[in-house]
C-alpha cells in the first residue's frame, strides 16, 4: 500500500479532512459545528453527518472528553468501524468466477477493469476480459488497448451487439482456455433508466448460464460524486446483487464521503480504490488506511 500514499502525496494537502481544525483547541460548540461542516464538505451528507455528530457528542459526554484532539480520535475510530464491519474480501469462490463491473456513465469502469486485470494477472491469474460495453463509441477499442498493456485476453462483439452474449461468449472462451477469472465491462447507465437496468439484470442472468458463475458485481463510483451517489448505489443494488464498490479518482480533491452513508444504509463494502490513470493505480481497500488518509493532519506545517 506504499504506492497509495506516494500517489496521494501529490495531492495530500487537499486530501486531509481536518487540516483546518485546530487540534489543540477546547471542545466547544464552535468546534462541533466546524466538524459538522468538514464532514458535509466531504460529501458525507446531512443525514449521515448529524448521525455521526450525535454519536460523537454522546461519547464525548460519556468519556468526559474536553479536547478537540481526543474527539477527533474517537471520530476516526467510529468511521473506521463503520467501514470495517463490512467484508472487503473478494470472492473467487467458483470454478470459473465472473466479476461484472457496473455504474453510471464516466465513473471509470473500463479503466478500473484494466487495473483489476493488471493486479490479478500479476497475482498469477489467467484472465479473460469481456468488452460488454457495446454502446459507447470506441469503448471496446479502449479496453483492447488495456488488454495489450496488461497482457490479457479480450473477447469483444460488434458495436451495438447484445452485451449479454458478449459476456457469455467470454465465459465460454475462458472455460475452453482454462482461464481462472472473467472480468466483464458493461456500458455506463444512469440508474434512473428502467430499460437499461433491466438489461443489466439480463446480463447477470446470462453470465451465470454457461460455465461461469458471477461472484462479484462491482459498482464503480466516482469519488467526485455528491449525494446522488447514495441513490446510484440504491438503484443498482435493487436491480442486481451489488457485492462491492470501487471508489475511483481519489487522486482528485474529492473525498468520496458518500461511502459512509452507503456503508451505513446499504451495507455495501468498498473493495478497491483507484488513485490515477495508469493501470497500476488501483489498490485493494483497507478501511484503516483509508480513514487515516482522510485524517492526515497538516496542522504543524
Amino acid at each position: 500500500m506504499k504506492r497509495v500514499t506516494s500517489e496521494l502525496d501529490k495531492t495530500r494537502k487537499n486530501f486531509s479532512l481536518f487540516s483546518k481544525l485546530k487540534r489543540k483547541s477546547h471542545l466547544n460548540s464552535q468546534v462541533w459545528s466546524e466538524i459538522e461542516e468538514i464532514l458535509i464538505q466531504a460529501d458525507v451528507g446531512v443525514v449521515a453527518t448529524s448521525m455521526i455528530i450525535e454519536q460523537l457528542q454522546e461519547k464525548a459526554k460519556e468519556m468526559k472528553l474536553s479536547a478537540t484532539e481526543s474527539i477527533i480520535d474517537v471520530l476516526k475510530e467510529q468511521l473506521k468501524q463503520s467501514l470495517m464491519k463490512l467484508d472487503s474480501a473478494l470472492n473467487t469462490d467458483a470454478e470459473l468466477p465472473v466479476w461484472i463491473f457496473v455504474g453510471v456513465n464516466g465513473v471509470g469502469k473500463t479503466t478500473s477493469i484494466a487495473k483489476v486485470a493488471n493486479l490479478k494477472s500479476q497475482g498469477g491469474k489467467n484472465i479473460v476480459m469481456a468488452a460488454g460495453d457495446t454502446f459507447r463509441a470506441a469503448a471496446s477499442e479502449q479496453l483492447e488497448r488495456w488488454a495489450v498493456v496488461c497482457g490479457t485476453e479480450l473477447i469483444k462483439g460488434a458495436d451495438g451487439a447484445d452485451p449479454s452474449s458478449v459476456i457469455f461468449d467470454a465465459t465460454e472462451h475462458a472455460h475452453a482456455t482454462n482461464a481462472s477469472l472473467v472480468l466483464a465491462d458493461t456500458a455506463g447507465r444512469l440508474h434512473t433508466k428502467a430499460n437499461l437496468m433491466q438489461e443489466l439484470e439480463k446480463i447477470v442472468r446470462v453470465a451465470n448460464k454457461g460455465k461461469g458463475t458471477v461472484t462479484e458485481i462491482l459498482l464503480v463510483l466516482d469519488s467526485t460524486v455528491g449525494q446522488n451517489g447514495l441513490q446510484q448505489a440504491k438503484s443498482f443494488a435493487e436491480s442486481v446483487d451489488v457485492t462491492g464498490i470501487i471508489l475511483t479518482k481519489l487522486d482528485g480533491s474529492s473525498k468520496g464521503g458518500i461511502i459512509f452513508a452507503i456503508a451505513e444504509e446499504l451495507k455495501i463494502p468498498i473493495k478497491f480504490i483507484g488513485v490515477g490513470e495508469s493501470h497500476e493505480d488501483l489498490f485493494p481497500f483497507d478501511a484503516e488506511e483509508f480513514v487515516e488518509m482522510l485524517f492526515d493532519f497538516q496542522e504543524e506545517m
Binding site: 460529501d43 464516466g106 446522488n228 458518500i258
Partner: peptide, 10 residues
C-alpha cells in the same frame, strides 16, 4: 457532471 458533490466549486 450534474452529479458532482461539494468539490464542484473548487
Amino acid at each position: 457532471d450534474a452529479m458532482t458533490g461539494q468539490e464542484a466549486v473548487n
